[in-house]
Amino acid sequence: MDITKDMLQAATRKAVEAGLLPRRVYVEDIATNAEIMRDILEAALESAAKSDSDLSSPAPQPN
């Protein structure tokens, strides 16, 4: 799944609300914060995809 501009904006908004990113930033920090959020979203989507595939495979049977 590709990360859209809307996804990035929503994640950044939530990070600011949670105090993970500063509410007021310098212009040069905006791109850095966007890249950080993109990396976090990519990791979350990869983890979710892995979890989904783990859930669809049968559980190991005890010996």
Rank of each mutant, 00 (worst) to 15 (best):
A18P: 01
I30P: 01
S51N: 11
L20M: 08
R24D: 07
Q9E: 09
R38E: 13
L41H: 03
V27R: 14
V27N: 10
N63I: 06
L45D: 03
I30W: 03
D6A: 12
G19Y: 01
N63E: 10
I30E: 06
E42N: 10
T4Q: 04
V25I: 07
D29W: 09
R24W: 02
L45F: 14
A31Q: 11
Q61M: 09
E35K: 15
S47W: 05
V16K: 07
A11P: 00
S47D: 13
R24K: 15
Q9A: 12
D2N: 14
Y26R: 15
A11K: 10
D6H: 06
K5G: 03
A15V: 02
Q61L: 12
Q61G: 01
L55R: 15
T32R: 15
A11V: 00
D2G: 07
R13Q: 13
A43E: 12
A15D: 09
M1W: 05
A43M: 06
A11E: 03
L55T: 10
I30M: 11
Q61D: 12
Y26G: 10
A44E: 15
M7L: 04
E42T: 13
G19W: 05
D52W: 06
R23G: 07
K50Q: 11
N33L: 05
S57A: 13
A49F: 09
R13G: 02
R24P: 00
N33W: 02
I40C: 10
N63P: 11
D52H: 11
D54E: 09
L41V: 06
I3T: 10
R24N: 05
S56C: 06
E17M: 09
S51G: 05
P58F: 03
A18I: 01
D54W: 05
G19T: 04
S51L: 15
T4P: 02
V16Y: 01
L55N: 11
S51K: 14
D39E: 08
E28F: 14
M37R: 09
I36C: 02
A15P: 00
I40L: 13
A59L: 07
S53A: 15
I30H: 06
S56T: 10
D6N: 13
A11C: 00
M37L: 11
D54R: 04
D54Q: 11
T12S: 12
N33M: 05
L45H: 14
T4H: 02
S53Q: 12
L20A: 09
Q61Y: 06
P58Q: 03
G19S: 01
D29F: 08
D2Q: 13
A44I: 10
S56A: 14
N33K: 01
S51R: 15
R38K: 15
K14V: 01
D29V: 07
K5V: 08
A59M: 02
E17L: 13
A49K: 14
S56N: 10
P58M: 07
D52Q: 11
E28S: 13
R23H: 08
D54S: 09
E28W: 14
E46S: 14
R38G: 12
D54Y: 08
R38S: 12
P22M: 00
V25D: 00
E28Y: 15
S53F: 08
I3N: 05
L21I: 08
